[in-house]
Write a protein that binds this DNA or RNA. Sequence first.
DNA 1: AATATTTTTTAGACAAGACTAAAAATGTTT
DNA 2: AAACATTTTTAGTCTTGTCTAAAAAATATT
Lengths: 230, 230
Amino acid sequence: MQKIISLHHKLESMFSHSEENYLKAIYHLGITSVNGVSTNAIAKKLSTKASSVTDMIKKLAEKKVLIYKKYQGVSLTEEGKKTAALIVRKHRLWEVFLVEKLNFNWDEVHDVAEQLEHIKSSKLINEIDALLGFPKFDPHGDPIPDTNGNLHLIEKKLLSTLQINETGICIGVKDSSASFLQFLDKQQIALGQEVEVLEKEDFDDSMTIKINNKKMTVSNKIANNLYIQK
Amino acid sequence: MQKIISLHHKLESMFSHSEENYLKAIYHLGITSVNGVSTNAIAKKLSTKASSVTDMIKKLAEKKVLIYKKYQGVSLTEEGKKTAALIVRKHRLWEVFLVEKLNFNWDEVHDVAEQLEHIKSSKLINEIDALLGFPKFDPHGDPIPDTNGNLHLIEKKLLSTLQINETGICIGVKDSSASFLQFLDKQQIALGQEVEVLEKEDFDDSMTIKINNKKMTVSNKIANNLYIQK
DNA sequence: AATATTTTTTAGACAAGACTAAAAATGTTT
DNA sequence: AAACATTTTTAGTCTTGTCTAAAAAATATT
């Protein structure tokens, strides 16, 4: 009996809203860096103060979801990674739901998904998953972790790294801020379109590309935020 | 500019999770009673202590969503009623969504809807409303307030008040606890079915009814929790 | 009307999560 | 290696929302 109760809590209500946000932030920051994630990096990501971060990571370390040594930054344990990945899973599935079923544009989904990701109900998210046909990517091209928190990374590179005459498919955005997404909408650039690099300008690193059968020039800032699959 | 900011806040993020729960509780308790709602009644409804309630209602009174005079209980202002009704609207629409789109049974929706009702996004709830075809009642037969927080009450009476030979349609439940709903499922009683009173037993106030073309005897406790439309 | 009971409020404490300011550790320059 | 700069931690405070225990008000009883 004791086991069932503790299992249930483990599944559905182990972490507070705030703890979940920290776990997710550390998860995102940890994917790139091999070393631990620094206190300041977390503070920046969550728009909070380093002292608040120190308090919280001590708490999360006691809960065994991350390893913390003073002045050394943190790294998630396996349990922490899984917990975080399942929050990311919820976030991305809700984003797909909002776009596919509720007529949200891809630049409108983030704030709402940020709230919905904290809803505690495994049945709810699994049914949403099924309703959507078990999608593997969110509207911005980011992969959706499975029910165990595993996500298979996909081969992709930034448009800015392509050479002249190389082609590929536009499969995701690195910066998913509303302003960048709206810019892409305005330029009629969407995921799934084929891209070909026609020219690269050494002076400002801008490139001329053919996308959506239209020739256009994009700045380095743009090319640095579009993911291409070869 | 100042005005736009304050309007936005008014629409989407005026109240905390906890404040919303108090408003909803007071709204539900206030529907029946003509007088103010007592501190103890609120405490009981929210499974909290009277002293906590006193603290919170002082805060809500300052925010002008309810009227509070010491030792006199509280009553919602028009703004408070509207705010509460919009939370109830969200709760009930999410319940319909869970049952209609996500294969939830009507006895499983309450806890999840209790979380979903706090999501701040008017677009979200209006799109859910549209997706569902603008339903007027939730899975338990309770009316769904409109976008302005108005709800039109419908003529209904408890099964227990019907006389012998009277008939009606089963349109809602008063007690929507999982155990009662599961009992109704087991007896194959569902909303929309026609009911006819065949006999009433004075001794224990049980009744024999014909429902779903089946003759059955129900206790007073059951008959007191089923709403009938004549 | 006086007493007893119940309800409500006050006072003070606590936990979670955030903040500021200052101290300590680490990293970088010279 | 010493001095400077940055990062991180500590210490103490604040807010929100809760609690217990005791006081005050309202209600019920005799």
